[in-house]
Amino acid sequence: MNRFAYASPATVTEAAAATGLVAEAMVTFDESAVLKAGGIDLLDLLKLELLTPSVVVNLRAIKGLDAITQDAAGNVAIGAMATLSQVAEHPLVRGSYPALATAIAGAAGPQLRNVATLGGNLLQRPHCWYLRSPAHHCLRKGGGHCFAIHGENQYHAIFDNHACAIVHPSTAATALVALNAEVELHDAEGATRRLPLEDFFVGPDDDIQRENALRPREVLTAIHLRKPASGTRMAHLRQGEKAGFDWPLADVAVVLAIGPDGVCREASVVLGAAAPVPHRARAAEQALQGRHPGEAAAGDAARAALRGATPLSLNAYKLALFETLVRRAILAALA
C-alpha cells in the first residue's frame, strides 16, 4: 500500500466534495482520492497497488447512511452503508425480498459481511484474475488487450465478452436488478438523482474502464426497492466450485409476478457471473410472461436465457450450468 491521508467527513455532501472521484469503483486506477465504505474491496486494490490514492475518504462516520427503512407505501430503502449482514438479516428484506437476502447471505463469509456494505458491494471492481494482477496490463487498466479472451477464461463472461470478458462480481446486484431496484446518488452540491440499477452499470462497449455511471463528486447513498406486487415470487440460486465462500460460476435471480389466475404477469430473469454487468435475460422473461409457469415454461425460459451467448474457449460449461440454474430458480420461486 502507498501512503495516503485519511479523512472522515460527517456529511455526504462533504464526502462528495472531498474527492473529485467516484467511490470504490474507479474511473482509472491512478486517481488521487477515493471513497471508502466498508473498505474490503478498497483495501484489496490498495494492497495490490492497483489504486494509489493520496487521500482515502471514509464514509463510515456519516450518520444514517446504514438505515433500512420502509415508507408508507411499503417501499424499502437500504442505506448504502448498511452492511451485508444487516441487509441479509433484516426482517424487511427477508420478508419482502427473500431472493436478495439469499444472494447476500451466500456472499463471502460472515466476517466480511459484517463489514462490507451493500453500496460497496455494488461498486466493487471485478475479480477477473488479470484485472487484479498488477503484472497484466489489461484493457480495463489502459492496456492493449483483454488477456482473458484468449487466456484462462473459465470464470469469465459468456455474453458481451468480445472486448473485455469480466463478469460483474456482485450477487446482490443480480438480485437487485431482478427486483428493478434503483440507486440514489448524491453530489457535492447536495443534489440527488435516482436511476435504475440496471442503467447504473456500464458495459465495456460504453466505457472499457468503468463498471458504473457514478460521476465524479458523487456518492451512492441508497438502494430503493419497490413494494412487491401481491403474488410476487422470487428466488436466487448460485453455483460455485466450492460449496461455500466462493465466487459463483453462475448465479441467477428470478422474480415472477403471478396473477390470481396463475398466469405470470411479469418476469425478471437476471444472470450473474455471465456478463460484464448483471445480464437480464429478456428472452427468458418473454418465455414466462402470459403463461402458467411450470416445468415446461421453466425449461423454455432456461433455453431462451442462453440464446445469443458467445462462450469463450474454456467457459462453454456455463451454458449448461445457467440453463439448469434458470430452470431451477423459476421452479424454486414457484415452490
Binding site: H127, W129, A135, H136, G151, K242, A243
Partner: peptide, 29 residues
C-alpha cells in the same frame, strides 16, 4: 475437487497466486 495452479500460457504467469482464486476446501466442502 478444487485445487489447481493456473498458468497463463501466453504470459507465463500464475494467475491464481492467492487464496481467493486458488481454492482450498473449506468447512462446507
Amino acid at each position: 475437487l478444487l485445487e489447481r495452479r493456473v498458468m497463463d500460457r501466453r504470459t507465463g504467469l500464475m494467475v491464481n497466486a492467492d487464496l481467493e482464486h486458488y481454492k482450498l476446501a473449506g468447512v462446507h466442502d
